[in-house]
Design a protein around this nucleic acid. Structure first.
Lengths: 343, 343
DNA sequence: CTGAAAGCGCTTACAG
DNA sequence: CTGAAAGCGCTTACAG
């Protein structure tokens, strides 16, 4: 039993291939009775239009590609899941582009749009992996594209994210409100826009509180748990230890928590720890992690919706969608310890 | 600047489209100098062959589809990442099929193979979402397919997983070796083959130790953290409490840990908790979770390799790949408490 | 409302 | 080693 083609269905239902095609794509153009005959043949034969035949004609693949550095991170996984759901709802399939942080892979996935394999691209990486002519307007040279999370700051580019600066500021202000003054910051990946934005937020809050930031309180990290551990080790060695540590994501905060336990510190009595993201396991830590919640589903859905608008030929009126974060207070943060205040 | 086609490149390099095609697909068939001319034109123009033109001719999409119930679960995410990496290495792209546990979505993704949108399918769900004629040999009716993790037990079907039974048995034996006799089991999703397999392993170990299993020790769950919490609550209400709890995955174990903390139990002094999977956060819990490690990368790679063999027209000699699990002893398990032994 | 025909961009058996 | 030609399965402007 060879695979059915549109001609087979046409023969089966006694119409032309054109009419079969119309019945499937634009039923309103077809007489009701004809339609019925065709649908019957389609049903009985289990016919599925070959995607490539149609893609070749219509020049639409029905695919989009999602590019992320690491899909095993909760944040990315949550977002792509929402994207996929929304994409499916609108008839699009999702090609997975896990770059493992490699630029050549970013380009590989970008090529899928160039080769017509995908109609649009969702970028959760901090770079534009396209060759562009610097003399031409940039936007005109790009395919339908949305930048999410690690939002690429290009004028007019469609972007979706929480306000990282405001989020980090809220986190820092919360720690300040608990009486903390010596608040350390553990940074994320240095090439990530989100990292710079969160750092800005931290500094804004500290400035406004009239506090001088000791450079030793700012410790490098890369958003990994290991880097959170290393950063915490470093902070513990300082002569004047911070009383609170704001890690720029939950994974690092979880690393910090582990180091503190290892050295026998009580959290939050001795030292407060705060994260960012609100991954699923944040609430399950001991103590449960205070953090800034990111609405992953909303981010994914909004990104897909922005892309859909472009795919439908509309330039979205609002090209930057900022989604609300939320301060989630749990048990890893508490009032500044007494000696911390006075010291 | 319209998109370049193969004819454009042919014109640019002064050869026929056929030769351009050969240069790109079977360079060894083409004279070296001709090849050079063509490659030069390809480079300069940035030409990418249109995937649909070629797919239509060759009847190969170059895509595979991966079907999983929930990509936000660490286990699935780790596996799909390895799949993607291996797929890319061999020129395949990965279509993401997150089913959210819905059968209609499983069928939707299965349809991608039927419509030629994907050449093969990797199934991490416990069902075959294909219509088959029960009078015909099953395998002949299926596309290139590999079943992973929730391995569908069909004779001859390509499958990849750890030996869940042996893993659960090793876990239970380990708890027995610590002196535990009242060992509870918190079950996973009831429709998951892995759940039944792990339950078998648990029973095997208990039987061989000559222990009667109190039915109350077997508590339903669904692999979610919440279900782990509910199960633990239930177990704590038993007149004769178990001294060890073997949760059939880490998420449930983490839930159990939280409930125990909440009620003030010391782990493992009062009660031991064990998981299965060894997700990234297992090691980061307090106490760190003793568990059975699954080699996610190996599973993903092996699954893809089995699929590749089929895609290349070979029926793999070995249609079941069993990967080694590993008992990871951490701090959530310890010797049976004294009163537990005597009671 | 329906059909015949052209053509999307590629590949490959065939001929030379 | 290379080219001309046919055709993969579909869609759609055109004609009726």
């Amino acid at each position: 039993m060879r695979k059915m083609g549109i001609k087979d269905i046409a023969a089966l239902s006694g119409v032309s291939p054109a009419t079969v095609s119309r019945t499937l794509r634009n039923p309103e153009l077809v007489n009701k009775d004809t339609r019925k005959k065709v649908m019957k043949a389609v049903k009985e034969s289990g016919y599925r239009p070959n995607r490539f035949g149609s893609s070749l004609r219509t020049r639409q693949s029905g695919n989009i590609v999602v590019v992320m550095p690491d899909i095993t991170h909760q944040v990315n996984a949550g977002i792509i899941r929402a994207i996929e759901s929304e994409a499916q709802k609108h008839g699009y399939s999702v090609l997975l582009g896990d770059t493992q942080g490699l630029i050549e892979r970013e380009r590989h996935y970008a090529d899928m749009v160039n080769s017509g394999q995908a109609d649009g691209i969702l970028l959760f990486t901090p770079r534009l992996p396209f060759d562009v002519d610097p003399d031409q307007p940039l936007l005109k040279q790009l395919p339908p594209l949305v930048s999410g999370n690690e939002t690429i700051p290009v004028e007019g580019l469609c972007r979706v994210s929480v306000n990282n600066t405001a989020g980090a500021r809220a986190a820092t202000e919360y720690l300040l409100s608990l009486g903390h003054r010596r608040i350390a910051a553990v940074l994320g990946a240095s090439d990530a826009p989100s990292n710079q934005e969160r750092l800005d937020g931290y500094h804004q809050a500290m400035d406004e509180a009239g506090l001088q930031v000791d450079p030793q309180w700012i410790v490098a990290g890369d958003y990994s748990t290991d880097s959170g551990m290393a950063a915490m080790e470093k902070l513990l060695k300082l002569r004047q230890r911070p009383t609170a540590v704001f890690c720029f994501n939950d994974d690092m905060a979880i690393g910090a928590l582990n180091v503190l336990h290892q050295y026998g510190f009580a959290i939050p009595q001795d030292i407060s720890v705060m994260g960012f993201d609100d991954i699923r396991y944040a609430a399950l830590m001991r103590p449960a992690l205070t953090t800034i919640h990111q609405p992953l589903e909303d981010i994914g859905r909004a990104a897909m919706q922005l892309l859909l608008e472009q795919l439908n030929g509309r330039q979205p009126k609002n090209n930057y969608v900022e989604l609300p974060f939320e301060l989630i207070v749990r048990q890893s943060t508490g009032p500044v310890p007494l000696q911390g205040e006075s010291e």
